[in-house]
Design a protein around this nucleic acid. Structure first.
Lengths: 218, 218
DNA sequence: ATGCAACTAGACTGTCCAGTACCGATGTGT
DNA sequence: ACACATCGGTACTGGACAGTCTAGTTGCAT
């Protein structure tokens, strides 16, 4: 029920065993993301990973455990990708330019079929797996806005932004940049994910509003 | 698969029949919202509505048809509630005051357990029922932003707002006001729905940013 | 009150699925 | 090359569920 069970492969860690384990994880990821928790059968996972059902159960004690493992791992990897080091505002001395790059980076990483499917899956299972959703929230939007808030604090201290409440500014920036695209993609499917050009435009426009409120006049 | 079948009750519209029909719809709404499409059984719906399974199938040809009916009807009713006539900016001659009321109204109507559950349900079923999700998108956010765009057009014509692209301004206003609360409620569950006081604050803060970008200086 | 449509109860079919059991085959470390 | 853990195939158990069927019951309109 909870996030756990990330301790190597429990049985012998022979090469074969971990190869199988990976195959199972890959197949399960694909099927769960496509068909949801209840819509997925363990037989399908076994078949798709070219592994016997027995082997699946040797690695994962139950469907639920496998599901939790998949979602946790995807969530973590995604979070790390989003928050890989962003070069902290070097020669792009222009705040606007820097924030535009920052926003576009976030948007383009998040607006991926994979991540959209994960979000839909987790949201659809909120009542069955509230812990998974909470973790996704914390490792996702919350973490992103936390880092943004830190950034804005710094920029405010440097006199480059007029930010009184960094957390609030982070919320505004984050959603000015991402909300429309995200909401569209969530409901209209992966085909509604904006093109890079559209993403850039959304970031520019959102940033303009943000700077009107939080920029320093010069 | 598609939205249809809203023509009275197909069999004789005796009082009893329509009473049963309503009971079924009520029970099905509750169960589907709670347990999702696959997680719901027709037996449970029958039991909860104190009706025999046979009667359920006399009114709705299949589980899928019942589901579509429920979701469509909920979507429509919600859309109508959100877009019931808003007194068009009378004595509250102040644009800010008016927009604050407008925003708060939207937020407080949308941030309801019922509607959050509906959104989660539909999002979780995007790949199984893409039409339902599309309808929810159109009757929900798209419609709201459409009306906002009209409003902004008018206000711009009256010289009360500096809006060049009403649709874009609508997107910004909508998400500045709603995104944070909505995203939180989607992932953290109904208990994370902000209190009215918090909602008011979010609207005020979002509106301030909006007006910094789109307000007319005076 | 009477006839008929609508309803109830529950059994039933066919299918699907999580999880287990068994056994013969196979790859791995030594 | 050998021994043994691991694996594949497959069948099985127990239970759930969509949808159907039947036979008897109930409530509504006339």
């Amino acid at each position: 029920m909870v996030v756990s069970d990330r301790i190597e492969s429990a049985p012998g860690s022979s090469k074969r065993s971990s190869r199988k384990r990976l195959a199972i994880l890959d197949a399960a990821t694909e099927v769960f993301l496509r068909d949801g928790y209840l819509g997925t059968s363990m037989d399908e996972i076994a078949t798709l990973s070219s592994v016997s059902k027995q082997t699946v159960y040797k690695h994962f004690s139950s469907k639920e455990a496998l599901f939790v493992e998949i979602v946790s791992s995807l969530t973590d990897r995604t979070g790390d990708a989003v928050h890989a080091e962003m070069p902290p505002m070097q020669e792009a001395g222009d705040v606007a330019t820097y924030l535009e790059a920052y926003g576009y980076r976030q948007l383009s990483i998040v607006l991926t079929p994979r991540i959209m499917q994960l979000r839909r899956l987790v949201i659809g299972e909120v009542s069955r797996f509230p812990d998974l959703a909470r973790v996704l929230y914390e490792r996702g939007p919350q973490r992103a806005m936390g880092e943004l808030a830190d950034l804005f604090s710094q920029l405010a201290a440097d006199g480059l932004l007029a930010v009184k409440d960094p957390a609030m500014a982070a919320v505004h920036f984050n959603w000015l940049v991402m909300a429309q695209a995200l909401n569209q993609a969530m409901l209209l499917g992966d085909d509604a994910i904006p093109t890079p050009a559209e993403q850039r435009r959304a970031v520019k426009e959102g940033l303009a509003v943000f700077l009107a409120a939080y920029g320093v006049k010069r």
